[in-house]
Simulated scan of single mutants.
Amino acid sequence: MTLATLATLASPAVELRDVSVHYGQTRALAGLDLSVARGQTLALLGPSGSGKSTALKVLAGFVRPTSGRVLLDGVDITGLPPARRGLGVVVQSYALFPHLRVADNVAFGLRARRRPRSEVRERTREALELVGMADYARRFPRELSGGQQQRVAIARALAIRPPVLLLDEPLSALDAALREDMVAELLRLRAELPDTTLVYVTHDQGEALALADHIAVMRDARLVETGPCERLYRHPEHPFTARFLGAANLIPVEVLGPAGEGAVTVRLGPRELTATTAAAAARADGGEAVLGVRPHHLAVHAPGADLVPATLKGVQWRGSGYRLDLELTLGGRSCPVRADVPDDHGLPGIGEPVGVSIPDGCPLVPAEAG
């Protein structure tokens, strides 16, 4: 094996280096650095307008960056048009050709590359079998359900055997039940294509956690935080990550000091708690910090001496339980939070006082400026 081959294998599958995109005075991406390893599934997660779809379009070649570089296997492809990048792309609207049958839609990219007829036939058959659509090869897109059209769009992208598959919110147009089915299908597909790199854009944290190995959280055209899914969920280092990935309540606390490796002691109302943190020393210097407490970790009781006092402000029934809007009282100031409690929970009336308990082990993050 040559040194050049070894260098290629060691490089990321795809990489964005200091990529910015501006449309006049509008900033769509600002200095984005991102790399995805071979065989990895990365979810670009963020609210609408965060820049995640723009980042995917830069990778695909649909958008030319204002500055920065795009690399594929260590080779600069910034100036290459989409057709010459060899990447598979699945967009939200499916973009199937309505006048072509399913098999012809799937074969389109292969024919554009002037592959032999026998190869086109074989790869089309393989791709349709892979997504469970072989029996629909002669149908037109209008004769398919939304989930079936999505499978065909994925088969078309896979037929060219791309090293990287880009998916831009592919499930957002489907209803909830179909989304669940398609998540299961994508998980199966990922297991069958272990060497294919996936970059998956979504605003749905459930999809991101189910499908991805790594998550890149974006906001306001910038990368907030990136890392393995479990680490970002359990030990976020940025308050926006804690809030967006798991809908954590951000509750101000007083940091008292270290409590062992990766932990600190904090005071919250009348109680002292142990919180987890990726940088315990940095959190023990008296700086402002917040505890990321997810709604299902909050327990609501009758008022008590060892509980954080709160007032019930609103109730939403959600079938399996209730979502409670509460207002904590912390040292003379209030803090709105949400709690998820079981359906059999005895609820006080709106406006009545309650007591809230919070477990040890919640992540501590620095308070966000402003």
Rank of each mutant, 00 (worst) to 15 (best):
L312M: 02
H301V: 02
D285Y: 08
P336I: 08
N249R: 04
R267E: 05
V255K: 06
G331D: 07
L256N: 07
L312A: 02
Q316D: 15
H296Q: 14
G331P: 12
A289C: 12
V290M: 02
G304L: 08
V266N: 01
R271I: 11
G314I: 01
E261N: 06
E327Q: 14
L312R: 03
A263W: 05
H297E: 13
L307Q: 13
P336H: 06
T276E: 06
V300E: 09
T265G: 06
A281L: 10
A247T: 14
Q316R: 15
C335T: 10
V266M: 08
T329Y: 00
G332K: 00
L307I: 08
T311A: 05
D285N: 14
H296N: 13
A302T: 14
A302I: 06
G319N: 08
P336W: 10
S320T: 14
K313V: 14
P258W: 04
L330T: 01
A284M: 09
L256Y: 06
A299H: 14
Q316H: 15
H296Y: 09
A310C: 02
E272I: 05
L307R: 15
H297F: 11
S334M: 10
G292E: 03
L291I: 01
L312N: 08
A281K: 03
L256S: 06
G331W: 13
A263C: 00
A263T: 04
G332N: 02
H301T: 08
G314W: 09
V264P: 00
H297N: 11
G260A: 06
P303V: 11
T274Y: 07
C335R: 12
V255W: 05
V300D: 04
R333E: 15
W317N: 14
G257F: 12
L312K: 00
A339V: 11
N249V: 05
N249M: 02
T329I: 01
G287W: 01
L298F: 13
G292Q: 01
